[in-house]
Every structure is written in C-alpha cells, then in structure tokens.
Amino acid sequence: MTTTTGTSLVTMRGVGKRYGNILALQDVDLDVQAGRVTCVLGDNGAGKSTLIKIIAGRHQHSEGVLEIHGEERTLGSPREALDLGIAAVYQDLAVVPLMPVWRNFFLGSELTKGRGPARILDVKKMQRIAKQELLDMGIDLRDVNQPIHQLSGGERQCVAIARAVYFGARVLILDEPTAALGVKQSGVVLRYVLRARDRGLGVVFITHNPHHAYPVGDRFLLLKRGRPLGYHEKKDVTLDELTSQMAGGAELEELAHELEQTDADSALIADVRAAEV
C-alpha cells in the first residue's frame, strides 16, 4: 500500500442526516486513518448504519462536511464511493445468494479477455483468483462454484470482505459483520479485520458489541440516539469503561447481563489477540 499508517482517508466534521423530519444523525466528527480500525458503537437505532451509508454513497449527508482523501465531497452512488476506494460490506446485502462464489467475488468488476464483441469472461482466471484470495485470507472453500447461499454466514461475510480488499479498497466499511455470528465465526471475521488493517486499509467497524470492538479497534466512536457520546483512542479507555458508557448508568441490569457472557467473549479476545501478533 502506498498510504502510510495514520494518513486520513475519510474525515467527517459536524455531519448530520435528516430523513424528512427525523434527525437520524447529528454533529458527528470522525477520522478514518490508513492502517487503523475505527469502531462505531451504539445501540439499535443509534445511527450507525446511517453514518456508514453516507461514507459508502448510499445516502447523502444533510449537514456538515465530508472529506475524502482531503477533498470535500458528497457521494452520489455506491459506484462513486467504490471508485474512490471506499467499499462497504453489509450484513444483509453483501452477496447475490443464487450465484456461485466466484461470480459474486467478481460481480461488478468482472475480468474479461478478448476485445469488442468477442470480449468474454475469463472464467478460469476468476475461479483461480477467487480461490487463492480466499485461501490467502485463511478461508479454505470447498468449491468456488457453489452458490454462495450454501456458505455459512461468516464465510459469506469473509468473501465480501476479501472481495473488497482484492479490488484495492483503501477504506473498508463493515456494518455489524459479527452480529449474526457465533463466537467462533466472529473470531474468523475479527481476525480478518486485522489482516485488512495490516494491509494498510482504513477500517470502519460497526458493532453494538464492545467485546468485539475493543480487541481490534484503535479508536472508538460511541453513538446514542444519533449523537456522538464519546470518541476515544484505545489508550484512553478500557473495555469496562466502553461497556458502561454504552450501557449508560441506568441500564445496570442489562450491563450485568452482558458481563455474564464475558466467559465466551474473553476466550474470543484471547483468540483474536493471538492472531494479532
């Protein structure tokens, strides 16, 4: 990668978004840097998805400034964002279920050979690359010809991430990639996030689980009801502080419930830490 770690790729200042009379997002400052993982945390409806849809070109912000590679921008479409090296992976709409893995991998950026009317898909090459890229990222698929709906949720998510990385994304946005996954599958995805980071990508990682965010994140943006609640460097905050800030003072009951589950999660954290070194 040409970008050095720490270069600002996407910067937001005072960004807000209205849907009609609904204020979904207000006053958000954010700095996505190359080789760093920025986590966005918040409860349901906090505005996390709205925030990343603005960066990914699916919605336009109605207030504030969005800078990409140092230039002020409003993104009109996902294609525009992709052309600027911003790729988003969504839990729900990452892939076309009935199409084979390799076709999904290259969808929208297919490799071809020949010219003019004789231009055809280079099927062999795409199959080989898809298989190899996935293998490099630690996903050993049975068969890249199988329809992607036959893969597990975690594998599907990883294919979508591998695709974004392969096509030279400089900013990778992940919307709750671990929300529907088991502990082990989450570990696979989180490890993958770190690999993307090590390749020099700026990663924006959305989650409502601080136990997933803390081990991989470098910075944490907390959202609540569309407003920023805090923006921390990792060195300035502990997992407990993050968790309690998210839960809020009054919701101790919920917090206790969350902490009960840390048994499984601390195993996960150890798992991810091991992959880090």
Partner: peptide, 21 residues
C-alpha cells in the same frame, strides 16, 4: 459475458448488485 453476470445479479438481488457497482 459481463452483461450476463449483471442480469443474474439484477434478478437475484438488485440491492446487493448495485452496492458492488
């Protein structure tokens, strides 16, 4: 062809297809 890929994708899941360009 690429267009064929797009046809399957447009019919299979148009939102996913447009999200990848």
């Amino acid at each position: 062809t690429r267009v064929g890929n797009w046809i399957f994708a447009a019919g299979g899941d148009d939102l996913a297809a447009s999200a990848v360009g």
